[in-house]
């Protein structure tokens, strides 16, 4: 029981990182109806920026600066490569983001080099005890920071002018335009927010084990998370991320014991299995809006 709870907490910690990434995907999707495959590269870039800045400015300031920096990079990408494509099929734009991802990742890998880079986080592999449970402090940090960020984000969407503009544009772009909402600014803001969240997620991915060139693959686990939660649901993204994290963690701990025939490292692909099962039951995810077809 103790082991199970510890496993769940590890899953929630990792899951909250997936949730941050998934939120980025969903924010961009809601604004532009495109899945941005550039998120993995932005995440990696964020982690690398932290690893370079942490020695200069101290860790916490480095995280903030990197997140702002990556938000700027995301803004630039949106302006240069995505804005000219407004009105083109979403599939085409999605493939463009895939191309951008490849390019940005090569540049970032140049900064990583061949070895593992540490992000200079204060948590490392240190452990704390919660009553009878002994868990790594970084899981708790991930969970806490994500909770704060998600609360801020939801408050932003609910209570600010720009949040309202983003919700309006997501609901109906033309009507929003007619009401004086600058849809272009909404696109830019959504990419900026997604970049910001991806950089923070990247920093958390790098805590403890550090980052290397293949770390970007972790960001793809946010894809099953958004599908499980529903592509256009912010709450769904958080729920999906946590579900994916916990399932993965459970498989990591117990699959070797109970289902060894699934092979080693099955935990890595378990999110995709969850995704397929959810889609068999609910084709638009747990919280996604069902598409209404009118003839």
């Amino acid at each position: 029981m103790k082991g199970l709870l510890e496993t769940v907490i590890r899953g929630l910690g990792n899951g909250s990182v997936y949730a941050l990434l998934a939120l980025g995907f969903v924010i961009i999707y809601k604004a532009t109806r495109v899945i941005s495959f550039a998120q993995p590269a932005l995440m990696l870039a964020g982690a690398v920026a932290v690893s370079y800045l942490a020695g200069v400015t101290g860790f916490y300031l480095a995280v903030l600066l990197s997140a702002l920096l990556i938000a700027g990079v995301a803004l630039a990408i949106e302006r240069v490569a995505i804005r000219p494509m407004v009105g083109r099929p979403v599939f085409v734009v999605a493939i463009i983001t895939l191309g951008i991802d490849v390019v940005v990742r090569v540049v970032v890998n140049g900064f990583i080099g061949r070895d593992v880079r540490q992000v200079g986080d204060p948590w490392g592999f240190t452990q704390v005890s919660l009553g009878p449970l002994v868990v790594q402090s970084r899981w708790l940090a991930m969970l806490l920071v994500t909770a704060v960020l998600v609360t801020l984000l939801f408050a932003f969407f609910r209570h600010t002018r720009y949040g309202l503009a983003m919700r309006a544009a997501a609901f109906d772009q033309e009507t929003a335009l007619a009401q004086g909402v600058s849809v272009g600014a909404v696109f830019a803001l959504s990419w900026g927010l997604a970049g910001f969240l991806a950089a923070i997620a990247g920093m958390f991915v790098g805590t403890g084990q550090g980052i290397e060139q293949m770390t970007w693959v972790i960001a793809l686990k946010a894809l099953p998370a958004i599908i499980v939660g529903g592509l256009d649901s912010l709450g769904g993204a958080v729920a999906g991320g946590l579900i994916v994290g916990v399932v993965e963690s459970l498989f990591q701990s117990y699959q070797g014991e109970f289902a060894p025939w699934l092979g080693q490292n099955f935990a890595i692909v378990s999110p995709y299995v969850v995704m397929l099962i959810v889609l068999l039951v609910k084709p638009y995810g747990l919280f996604g809006t069902r598409e209404v077809e009118r003839v």
Partner: peptide, 23 residues
């Protein structure tokens, strides 16, 4: 399964297929 899905949902699901196959 793919017939039930459209657009980018389908893209992500087929992407999952690659990962499962690789495993």
């Amino acid at each position: 399964l793919a017939g039930r899905l459209r657009g980018l949902y389908l893209a992500v699901v087929t992407l999952g297929l690659v990962f499962l196959g690789e495993h």
